[in-house]
Nucleic acid binder design. Structure first.
Lengths: 224, 224
DNA sequence: ACAAAGATGAGAGCAGTGCTCTTGACAAGG
DNA sequence: CCTTGTCAAGAGCACTGCTCTCATCTTTGT
């Protein structure tokens, strides 16, 4: 559908976006649990029931925010995927993910925190959700990281993943990237959710250290 | 205070525990966001306002549940910390953590998911929260894992942590354990929160694989 | 050009929430 | 015995998501 032919269509798409924007703004103070349709409607000068014409339920509004968040994070990672060597790109991309998470705390929580109660993620979210992983995979693929031994089931799962990937990577490398991927988000979540207080907090240096060790683990070197 | 002298005291401590137990039960269907004081009171055959005599607010009840959850998880890890070699103990302890998380999904969410909106963890939670990390540290300490190079800030942070530890570990080892610790919970969170669907799901084998690589990374070998 | 059809915003209302305050009953200690 | 403090209950406040109805306004088909 285009930008909307009739005046009503234009008003509709615009209001839909305004509602989402206001919701994102309100997300910033209190997180998803505190997001209130009524408050969003109030801020927009309309009554809560009118809002249901644009988002059938609170969950639908959340879904829209979740997809946006995945895409924003993915875009940040893709944009930072730049540098003279694969290792530099790896560091840059990981730092961008962390930077986005720190700057957009509650949006990060929305996608990598505990699932919103009663909410079931629709299929629309899986493609945007994969973007960060694809960045890491792309870097490793261009660097040509080595294969490694895998348990049979993990090997099979890696093969299955490889089948749907644009880049070609040996299963052992894929499994290691998957591990690094969970490490990356595990560390960011711990930092954001206050689990590192008392140990590696502030976490800037520790994060860089960990990202470097993960690069080694995956097989990225500085030879470009 | 003892078990309570007067009949009133006994009734009070008992009801306090019953409320918590019922709340934990209700946690199992819907998570913290859906825990309702009124529903708990209803299940106990009392009116919601009466419940406030025992827990001044919803957050206080949540705090009690959080401390219990940390302790239950810590106890599970400590109990599983057993085996002929440090490597075996490492695998067993990590598997126990994952097992507890899978069996107590919503309690895990309570402590390692996104923080409950508006909730600020009191100091009482930090000691129970450290138990799992202490298990990992204990294993590495007894195995005598090697030191390794660290960036200066990370080195300083590791030294600060070491100062408050019962076991003695070189800073480089401590930093690697910290990294493995974030990896462990990152992986469990990803599995539980549905982030692995489409890649390493079911995650049993992948989890074992990852735990093994982390053991290598920390410096645990099979020589005992 | 005009009427039918459809989209929209407002309002009332339902069932639920956390939490507070008051009231009347009961047990404990002086 | 009688005061003091604890307790469960109930009413009530300010919220929440969501549904339904109704009047209005825009688009569309004739």
């Amino acid at each position: 559908m285009s930008a909307g032919r009739t005046a009503r269509d234009r008003a509709r798409t615009e209001l839909t976006r305004e509602i989402k924007d206001e919701a994102r703004r309100q997300l910033a103070d209190g997180g998803a649990g505190r997001l209130s349709l009524r408050a969003v409607a109030r801020s927009l000068g309309m009554v809560s029931s009118a809002l249901y014409r644009y988002y059938p339920s609170r969950d639908d509004l959340l879904t829209a925010l979740i997809i946006d968040a995945y895409n924003a994070l993915g875009a940040a990672a893709e944009q930072a995927d730049d540098g003279p060597t694969p290792l530099a790109r790896w560091h840059s991309a990981c730092a961008a993910v962390r930077g986005w998470a720190l700057a957009n705390r509650y949006e990060y929580e929305l996608i990598y925190g505990s699932p919103v109660p009663g909410y079931r993620a629709p299929q629309d979210t899986v493609a945007p959700a994969a973007r960060v992983a694809l960045v890491l995979i792309g870097i490793a693929a261009e660097a040509g990281v080595p294969d490694s031994e895998l348990p049979p089931v993990v090997h099979a799962q890696s093969e299955a993943v490889r089948a749907v990937l644009p880049d070609d990577l040996p299963p052992g490398a894929l499994a290691r990237i998957l591990l690094a991927w969970t490490q990356l988000f595990g560390m960011i979540s711990f930092e954001l959710f206050g689990q590192l207080v008392g140990s590696a907090d502030p976490a800037d240096e520790f994060f860089g250290y960990a990202v470097g060790r993960m690069a080694e683990f995956v097989g990225l070197t500085d030879r470009g």
